[in-house]
Write a protein that binds this DNA or RNA. Sequence first.
DNA 1: TTTAGCACTCTTTTTTATCGATTGCTATTT
DNA 2: AAATAGCAATCGATAAAAAAGAGTGCTAAA
Lengths: 329, 329
Amino acid sequence: MLNARQTELLKLIVEDYIKTARPVSSNALCDIMNCSSATVRNEMAFLEDTGLIEKTHISSGRVPSEKGYRYYVDNIMVPKELNGDDMLKLQTLVHNHSLMLADYITKSVEIVSEMTSLTAVVLGSSSSENLISKVEVVPVTENTLVAIIITDKGHVEHKNVIIDEKVSSDDIKKTVDLINKLIVGTPIDEASSKLEYEVKPVIGKYIKQSEALYNAFYNAFNDFANQSFTMRGRSNILMQPEFDDTEKLRDIINKFEDKELINSIKEDENGINIYIGSENDLSDEVTVIKTKYSVNGEEGTIALIGPKRMEYDRVISLLDYITKNINDR
Amino acid sequence: MLNARQTELLKLIVEDYIKTARPVSSNALCDIMNCSSATVRNEMAFLEDTGLIEKTHISSGRVPSEKGYRYYVDNIMVPKELNGDDMLKLQTLVHNHSLMLADYITKSVEIVSEMTSLTAVVLGSSSSENLISKVEVVPVTENTLVAIIITDKGHVEHKNVIIDEKVSSDDIKKTVDLINKLIVGTPIDEASSKLEYEVKPVIGKYIKQSEALYNAFYNAFNDFANQSFTMRGRSNILMQPEFDDTEKLRDIINKFEDKELINSIKEDENGINIYIGSENDLSDEVTVIKTKYSVNGEEGTIALIGPKRMEYDRVISLLDYITKNINDR
DNA sequence: TTTAGCACTCTTTTTTATCGATTGCTATTT
DNA sequence: AAATAGCAATCGATAAAAAAGAGTGCTAAA
């Protein structure tokens, strides 16, 4: 355990490094610490022994280690009250009651991503938990129409379809009714196979030329099941000074393209969870902060990804604020 | 004008540089040119005087200049016949007749972007040329619904809406009918203001509690009007060796985020147009290749963006192939 | 317990040296 | 007249050496 001065010192080192991205020297802190640089150095030596800070080379200033960030986050940092500016940006969203849940969530992380220069990810409830609650078809022209799929969680997708012109609107209606009858209540990820094994054999009997429509829904279900997350501010991370070498940059960008990996971010613990460097599966170079939201039976995860050197106190407050507001919907 | 040997030399230099990304020496070419390196050097000196190639430093090999690429593209290069592999990847798409136009175009550039490692942009017909052909509403739950907007060019957008629960389905129908009656045929970018000045005053008289629905369409029209392009393979450019320094990388990524700038890419000349380095407004470091498509009255631009050092012969063929296929739809 | 002082270490920057690739030019050959 | 061989000259890239600067660790004194 650290004493008061050691705690203060670690706090100063972490916060200074977060601000400047440069190793912190003993000299730079002795004014604030009200003691000589030698004293600061003695305490620094202790913090280094404890593994909370480290040098980039033998005679450099100190930077927080992973463990140091962890200690800072767990024991020192207090979430930062949102300032007027931040608050204002979020208020207009929070008070907009005409957004449906999914849109509201997307918009929330979009704003937070922009405010923090971090990359934000929303991992909604998995497609096995989203049940089809309705399919609908809207005619566009003689031979095109829009197939609409709506889930019980309120997610909506549309897909444009070209149909064989010989299909009558009556047949379309019959097909849609049939699909609705057989497929409502099915999880999205099972919908396409259910369509294949239960609807397809029946559909042919009653309705000729139903193939195009069948295919449209088949593909729509598949696409819907596979689009599993939303990502905002992808390129924000490029602007961080720690990613000033192309090697790291390309590595991270490639990770961002890896759907499996991003999906594995999904959180199952409650509260705000912070994974610093090697604690996450993405990269030792980043911190992932994530939390679950849960509203009207829909559960999902919101994650923020950025350099380990991030403003934890502010980011946590922002994330907390938006998830609370999502939960309260 | 260049003689046969000079032409051959420029061709070799450009193509070698495109392949290797390293300055081309006289020695490397004398075998193929069937003469000594001194002779190659003499010709190189001539090409350099003409401004077609340049050195990276006083004793380096040569790289094509902007003017050199231009000459190569205009006078030397012949579009490369698509190989079996490329052909195959495109064929399955071309023969897929169940995709509506907009989807087909998006899918096309997606594939080409992937095949070429370039960034692809589709700039559809401007929102002033897209006329509303139909709006429709599908109920989801008691107090939510999906508003659907369809344009005469076959573009479809949906927007989720939360309505005041007091609105009866009959009132919704009336509202939609009214909007349809007054707004069909209006260009998208004028739709929201027309809604405000012509529909809003009327709607209140007949239907109480119409505000939510009105707002939904108002926003939907606005959003629809402003989403003006599709971009694929954004991060491909990161992988090119010429963008191995973070400075350039960040510059380009920022340009990609600039909607105005991307929108200004729009092409008005016919055929495939190539803008090398300073010839385009994006960056001296890139080439933009673009062409118009035009089908069923819908006109738009497809653009490919990549390093100046790109396989012009192959890229041009691919772009030509997909636009031809789009035009033939 | 704190601090002043100083040697020590390591990075960064600058300088110098060496090597190798490639050119431009000149003199020679074809 | 055109092509080439030969060679000095130039510059990048790599390595080594030197100098400057930042910051530490340790010792001895306050």
